[in-house]
Design a protein around this nucleic acid. Structure first.
Lengths: 135, 135
DNA sequence: AAATTTGTAACATATTTTATTACAGTATGA
DNA sequence: TCATACTGTAATAAAATATGTTACAAATTT
């Protein structure tokens, strides 16, 4: 399911890239996104789990990039934020006695999987540095 | 935002393609999807607005395909169901005093627009007939 | 020790999606 | 012509998901 995680995460990473020498606080980042700092910290927790950023607790603490922005692709960010492209499935199990109902989700899965590969190829060609340098 | 409209619509159209000589009732279709008939009728209303299906009211009424399945592409269905691919925007207006916040949505829009073109090209190559003949 | 910040859990609110009920209008055919 | 079986659509309800808030322990700096 699609949510704003990708957008939030890329916003965080762009900021970190713009201030490579500072530990940015979640409050500061939240001020740029206009979002609750707790939500920022949640996304940062995810980035930390993937060793993309490091953070420091305590006074003057915060977060900074731990990888080279040229090596981090939007595809990786896409995947780290658990995003997948899809156009929905029937929520309730479709009728198994109907030849269409029985197989539709399986066929949709193949289609969506191809869409994801397609988008992944595109996002693989864009680094965080590329994205950030647009600003 | 992504929902199940595309999946529901393609399910409906696949059924209609499988029974080209019958007017299928929303109840019958809903039984295959395992969905409330009213929701089926809503999607059919949309298809009717695009002249993809025709329907007949009253007893023994229902819906049938009004176009050649070979000529209807998944791209068209994608667009008719108002779907777009995206990975979210910051909901709240990002901070306009921050160079990143000020421009991020605009840059995301460009990125998402490219993703949509990419996916559209893919879906353009698949007709309803192609999809339906998998079953 | 005081101040500031992360990390995280628990809870609350808002938004979106899906489902239900209800009923007027239309066509069929016994 | 009347009972039946549909569509079309509005109004409302429920469920699911996403987003926001509060609270506070733990860590670090000065």
């Amino acid at each position: 399911m699609i949510s704003g995680k990708f957008a939030i995460t890329i916003h965080i990473l762009t900021l970190l890239h713009k201030f490579p020498n500072d530990y940015l606080s979640s409050e500061f980042i939240a001020g740029s996104i206009n979002l609750n700092p707790v939500l920022v910290r949640k996304e940062i927790a995810n980035l930390k789990a993937h060793h993309i950023v490091e953070s420091k607790e305590g006074k003057n603490g915060g977060t900074k990039l731990a990888v080279n922005a040229a090596d981090l692709t939007l595809k990786q960010i896409f995947e780290m934020t658990f995003e997948t492209i899809g156009l929905g499935f029937a929520k309730n199990q479709p009728n198994p006695d109907c030849p269409v109902g029985k197989n539709i989700n399986q066929h949709l899965e193949v289609l969506y999987s191809e869409m994801n590969q397609n988008v992944s190829r595109q996002l693989e060609g864009i680094s965080l540095e590329d994205f950030s340098n647009q600003f």
